[in-house]
Design a protein around this nucleic acid. Structure first.
Length: 256
DNA sequence: ATGGCTTCTCGTAGAAGA
């Protein structure tokens, strides 16, 4: 089984890239998307199903929007956080091959002095509480998505430059740690990885070419799944193509 | 250097992303 996450920064623009990427990865079971930026009536359900996938989605215009694309049926689909009233569409969950897969697009926060920052922290608190409940019901659980948190300085191309900024602030990192404390494992760090491994690179200033990036997209696994995890990789190829998303996909492989 | 790119909108400039 393989579980992946990819912030596509507009599915309208990136759908051909997503379908091509999936076609090249026949072993992939389920892909969580973030920033689809599409209302449900405009979601390309027919195209994705015609390509042979199951799909679930919840979105809005311009911002946010999440989806799950799967080769196995999506059961017990949950839309949005049940414990946080929020017009923004940031969470979708389903059970896939017996695994509870939660796809999340965590609030960016914009800046520490922005009103979006306390929203980010409160939203994360609700996520932590809900995922804790989900873990009691589902031993096999994967929390994946764009967390908008670089957990450690090694996940940041230039920690000094980012110090005191959103995505690396201690309150955000504490909440990431609280997710781990629920019993989740950052699958990427189960394995030896190249130094300066990132999942997002700024469109500006040739960020990708300079590898000026952050590792903010994650696949967190409950312990029973972490024990089965044999690999976790960032696929940088989709970041090299014409008109790419600014994020690359992250893929975790689980042995049967 | 408070920018730099890319996306979106009851659009053609401004907001937001990270």
């Amino acid at each position: 089984m393989q579980i992946a996450t990819w912030n596509v920064n507009s599915l309208k623009v990136r759908l051909p890239q997503v379908l091509e990427w999936l076609a090249g990865r026949p072993e992939l079971t389920v892909l969580a998307l973030q920033e689809t930026k599409l209302e449900d009536h405009a979601f390309p359900k027919a195209e994705i199903e015609a390509a042979g996938f199951h799909v679930a989605y919840v979105g809005q215009k311009t911002y946010n929007g999440v989806a799950l694309i799967s080769r196995a049926p999506l059961l017990d689909v949950q839309y949005n956080l049940p414990n946080y009233e929020d017009p923004q569409k940031r969470v979708i969950a389903a059970t896939v091959d017996g695994v509870r897969v939660i796809g999340a697009y965590v609030v960016n926060g914009q800046a520490l002095d922005s009103e979006k920052y306390p929203y980010k922290l409160a939203w994360l608190d609700a996520l932590i509480a809900w995922v804790g409940e989900q873990l009691q019901q589902h031993g096999k659980l994967a929390l994946v998505g764009d967390f908008n948190i670089a957990p450690e300085d090694r996940d940041v191309h230039d920690p000094a430059k980012w110090a005191g900024d959103v995505l690396v602030s201690p309150p955000e990192r504490e909440r990431f740690q609280q997710l781990l404390d629920l019993g989740l494992v950052d699958s990427f760090r189960l394995f030896e990885q190249a130094e300066k491994s990132f999942t997002w690179w700024d469109y500006r200033m040739m960020g990708f070419r300079r590898n000026a990036g952050l590792r903010i997209d994650h696949v967190l696994l409950s312990r029973p799944l972490a024990e089965r995890c044999t690999a976790c990789e960032v696929d940088k190829e989709p970041r090299r193509v014409e008109r790419p998303s600014d994020h690359a996909p992250v893929i975790a492989t689980l042995a049967e």
